[in-house]
Design a protein around this nucleic acid. Structure first.
Length: 519
RNA sequence: GGCCCGUUCGUCUAGGGGUUAGGACGCCAGGUUUUCAUCCUGGUAGCAGGGGUUCAAAUCCCCUACGGGCUACCA
């Protein structure tokens, strides 16, 4: 038994990586993470990030999926250097437009006896599998001799079948002598498979389109891909790919198989249905299924900043080796390396995702968010100019998870209509309204209505009346917001302005007295 | 079933022969704050099990268990 060993000898000076999704639906967060790690690796080595669309399965093609992929990547800031939209020297970047290449490749293999034509119908194969149960039936060296293929049939028989227009596929002829296929995975280290357990995979389907295995190897070679960074679900077919590269006489790229993202609870990998149950999105942006019309939520529409979403994904399976967790894409690109990618699957944690969003929101203060809040506020018709937005941000940034939480906080832009009944019962005494009446007069007399001025007058008022903060401030807050929590009331009063503050104070008092009378 | 990959607090992870096994999320408690939140301090909680190797094992080896993936004319 001879060990076939192919170590990565390629220097890191021409890094070319690709993200190669199928347009069979929206990209989910696992896919985005794969794209991210590819992008980061390219950036870290001054390489090229390529987007290739693997649309060789006509049956699973979904309208709009390709556009979704491009848009979702763009939102995440993972713009391809080469691809359908970006262009490039190695195009076309849609596999459906590269069929001649695959045909040539398959012919080369056929000519060398490294592949063969098989006429067995799916029905025949299914029957064989069924008959073998509970054992597993395989199309391989032990069975291919008794099946309808160009290895077992005579040349004239094959010619006749083809003349009759019988559909056929091309299968890879797995080497008969058992050997170990050993390769070095950049994340896992040495990985080894025995060829004896491999089956003769279909390379070219009856419709003339290649399967993933063929198209992937041929394209990765022609696109001069240096590192194949993909999900762990591809690990079992990696030996086939190594064998294919060898059959073509090509060096294979470095492989790196990423661990999968698992469900927050329960068993298995994260799937699109988990979001429903867990109350979190699985997709980067909203996706509407063109057939059913169902819409799936996206992180973008939920209010996540792309930087936060990407940061969260980054840390789900990679770490810098120290205790930092907050990274911009540029910072991450500087130190990303495959040997710091963890080997085991990671359970997705929605709480932590929110934490990343909050960190991103608060990280650099109000200024970076003014424009975005202004846009949101305008859409809601709140009439806040940029100054107002800055003030609101200063008050609210540390109390919300998403920017839209701010415009969703009704009392910020409209007098409250609901007053927390429990709080009123507990904190609003018979004398309270009297205090507030007096406070209103004090505030009405103010000429400067800045936060500091309101605070000064408020404190002087308490002192004069010999009252405690809690006796007046909380009722004041209730009258103005209807709630017991929130920003500094002095800041808020200044933000509202004198007139609106007094108006809310009087209306709030009236409403609360009304409530108390009905109790 | 077969093949392959994996296993450190509930979760994400650092640590890769000698560590009081570190950090983060969550949770709990205390402090700061007019409230809430932020922030600060502290606490909770972990090396899957069993065999080896070694003076010494979370760390190396083997077995078991468990988890995951693959096993299509899907990717």
């Amino acid at each position: 038994m001879r060990a076939l060993r192919a170590l990565p000898l390629r220097p890191m000076n021409d890094v070319r990586v690709r993200f190669a999704p199928s347009p069979t639906g929206p990209l989910h967060m696992g896919g985005v993470r794969t794209a991210l790690y590819n992008w980061l690796f390219a950036r870290a080595h001054g390489g090229t990030f390529i987007l290739r669309i693997e649309d060789t399965d006509q049956g699973r093609f979904v309208e709009g999926a390709e556009a979704y992929i491009e848009e979702a990547l763009a939102w995440c800031g993972l713009t391809p250097d080469e691809g359908v939209q970006a262009g490039g020297d190695c195009g076309p970047y849609r596999q459906s437009e590269r069929t001649a290449l695959y045909q040539d490749a398959v012919q080369t293999l056929l000519d060398q006896g490294l592949a063969y034509e098989a006429f067995d119908t799916p029905e025949e194969l299914n029957a064989l599998r069924k008959a073998a149960e509970p054992d597993v039936w395989q199309y391989d060296a032990s069975t291919r001799g008794g099946l309808r293929n160009s290895l077992a049939l005579g040349a004239d028989e094959v010619a006749q079948l083809k003349a009759d227009g019988a559909p056929f596929v091309v299968r890879f002829k797995t080497p008969e002598a058992d050997e170990a296929v050993v390769f070095e995975d950049a994340i896992r280290g040495e990985v080894s498979f025995q060829t004896a357990v491999l089956d003769d995979k279909v390379l070219m389907k009856a419709d003339g389109l290649p399967t993933y295995h063929l198209a992937n190897v041929v394209d990765d070679h022609h696109m001069r891909i240096s590192h194949v960074i993909r999900g762990e679900e591809w690990l079992p077919s990696a030996p086939l790919h190594v064998l294919l590269y060898r059959a073509f006489g090509w060096d294979h790229p470095v492989f790196a198989h990423l661990p999968l993202i698992l469900k927050p609870t329960g068993n298995g990998k994260l799937s699109k249905r988990d979001g429903d149950a867990g109350g979190f999105p699985v997709f980067p942006t909203n996706w509407t299924d063109p057939k059913s019309g169902d819409t799936w939520p996206g992180y973008r529409e939920q209010g996540y900043a792309p930087e936060a979403f990407v940061n969260m994904l980054l840390m789900l399976g990679w770490n810098p080796g120290d205790e930092r967790e907050l990274f911009s894409a540029e910072e991450a690109a500087e130190e990303f390396s495959l040997d710091r990618v963890v080997k085991s699957g990671a359970r997705f944690n929605p709480d932590k995702a929110k934490w990343f969003q909050e960190q991103h929101l608060r990280g650099s203060g109000s200024a970076p968010h003014v424009a975005a809040l202004h846009k949101l506020a305008s859409e809601k018709g709140l009439g806040w100019d940029e100054d107002a937005c800055t003030q609101v941000l200063d008050m609210m940034l540390e109390r919300v998870t998403f920017l839209h939480d701010i415009v969703d906080t009704a009392w910020l832009h409209a007098a409250p209509t609901d007053f927390n009944a429990k709080l009123v019962k507990k904190k609003w005494k018979d004398q309270t309204s009297g205090y507030l009446e007096d406070l209103a007069s004090e505030l009405a007399a103010l000429e400067d209505f800045s936060s500091e001025a309101v605070e000064t007058r408020f404190k002087a008022f308490l002192e004069a009346k010999e009252l405690g903060f809690g006796q007046v401030l909380l009722p004041f807050r209730i009258a103005l917001t209807g709630e017991g929590g929130g920003p500094s009331m002095f800041d808020f009063a200044a933000f509202l302005g004198q007139e609106a503050t007094l108006q809310r104070l009087r209306d709030g008092m009236a409403a609360v007295e009304e409530m108390r009378n009905h109790d």
